[in-house]
Design a protein around this nucleic acid. Sequence first.
DNA 1: CTGTTAGCGCCTTCAA
DNA 2: TTGAAGGCGCTAACAG
Lengths: 351, 351
Amino acid sequence: MTVTLADVAARARVSPATVSRVLNGNYPVAASTRERVLRAVDELDYVLNGPASALAAATSDLVGILVNDIADPFFGIMAGAAQSAIGSGTGRAGGEKLAVVCNTGGSPERELTYLTLLQRQRAAAVIVTGGALEDPRHTAAMAAKLAKMSDAGTRVVLCGRPPVPGDSVTATLAFDNRGGGRRLTEHLLRLGHRRIGYVAGPAERTTTRHRLEGHRAALAAAGLGGPEQERLTVHGSYDRRSGYEATLRLLDREPSLTAIVAANDTVALGACAALRERGLRIPDDVSVAGFDDLPFSVDAVPALTTVRLPLHDAGVRAGRLAMGTEAPPPGGVATIRGDLTLRASTAAPRQ
Amino acid sequence: MTVTLADVAARARVSPATVSRVLNGNYPVAASTRERVLRAVDELDYVLNGPASALAAATSDLVGILVNDIADPFFGIMAGAAQSAIGSGTGRAGGEKLAVVCNTGGSPERELTYLTLLQRQRAAAVIVTGGALEDPRHTAAMAAKLAKMSDAGTRVVLCGRPPVPGDSVTATLAFDNRGGGRRLTEHLLRLGHRRIGYVAGPAERTTTRHRLEGHRAALAAAGLGGPEQERLTVHGSYDRRSGYEATLRLLDREPSLTAIVAANDTVALGACAALRERGLRIPDDVSVAGFDDLPFSVDAVPALTTVRLPLHDAGVRAGRLAMGTEAPPPGGVATIRGDLTLRASTAAPRQ
DNA sequence: CTGTTAGCGCCTTCAA
DNA sequence: TTGAAGGCGCTAACAG
């Protein structure tokens, strides 16, 4: 029924082993022979059986990319970049990897489940993107699973996520969320703001914590630390609606705010909507800042001040690391800086 | 070295077949036996070998979701919804499918390549999302490939893409782009607009053509057809920058435009940026409309009038169809309507 | 309900 | 440079 490698061999009048060798191109084969085999492949419309070859070779051409939210361009950009660095060209049969993205939806269970599924498939590599959950149990489970996969020959790359203890991971590309958060708030302080609200992400995520720590560090350095800051911080999820609601709450709590820093650009957009609804103008009445510099941020009205993360570059690099095309950074960890990007949504407070 | 099913069998003092049966849960096994097996699995930290089981069973648990641009929420939302309908819960070993998204980047070659890769893996199902390229060669190649996969037992679902000839496809969920486009422009005409610019998507895509046809149909019905419309149409890609540039060109060509219809919301945002840059106010000077109703559209300033597509629902449905959980629509094709969503970016033209 | 027996289709030494 | 042979780990009849 289905065409097998043996059929191709028969038609090309060679042994199955030879067909295998030309298909994998990792062994010397006479040009004329290869020619005949390739012709037979075309004529028979043969398609390699992935599972069979993965079983025999004890490795597959699957590369998994885990993301927290596939509908969020933050992840889409990284994943797309990684995928293009891996999936590569129009290439022939050989060497093609199947780069594939898996959406955990931010759920730790799904994260582990996907890893197990990928492990089952004997994936060639795994790229885990975005902030990690800070639950000790989950962290341990992840570390264990990644270590096991790594031992089994799967390359493990972290992208936009802090390193995990132990050296089971091939490479880590971490964003300097703390530094970015600090510089952003320093900018606001420099403009003269003193009552700054903070709309944070989910409490138990590394990204959330690091950005918030940077913010607090800047405040503390300006002598604005202390419990007061708790009151000016509201947590929510990384989406627009959360930013909207959190901002309303913040305004109720402290109507005299002159600036709001959001966990990311999407949240910042929600914050803007809330401010507008309260009749407050941006940046005249309240300044707003985001994080990430997603494509829409430059088009927001007013254009959003934010911290630009090189998501595309990071994704490409993660893809190369997963392919083994690029050498891991010294120590296995590279920290990627974000650039403070000043636009119209921030200005000096009134009077 | 690695733990195999035989090891588990030995430890549980049963035959390999029995272990297989409890793992797949598709066969009666005594509760006490299952208990012992499961315990052995845990103790040995056993992980099923995917390729081996796929080889033996001649089918895998992979489900591929093809998207044109993973960084575009249009696709992210559909893919995420489909994935959640498939990947499902925290579930045990059994019945888990690996839903996986593949980014073609709009390239026909990559589309075919991914399909081949998925075919190699003996994927359980494939969901192809978004507009199709209208090149006859590519269309034929796609139809052939999908037919082959379908014959091999892979379920094929089209989501947001018009049906392909032949009935190799399990089910098609097509968006009524033509109807949506028509209703949108009818709305503008009703408001009194007569000089309406159109920023279209890439010329050779079904989505682009259908939306444009709807637009033209509405104009024709109002006696506004003809070659003049060619002049008021500019093609570009489905991104923000394209909308920005196309709008500038449109304004140069016809400064007296009172409305601009964009191929989708992202493009509409670019159009808004261009108008603002030219000192034109929305909707006072020029009305703007989009398509899709992506999450950010309600937050744009002014909020965007658009055609709302139920992307999430469509994705969920596609996921169910791919799982065989939901019966295909009669005739295999369901057409999904878009709702005209009126917001602040459109108004009657001045004077 | 459970064990036995054959492969699934390919890769990979080992010889020639 | 090519062929022959064994086995990768699991599932699916078929008995019992």
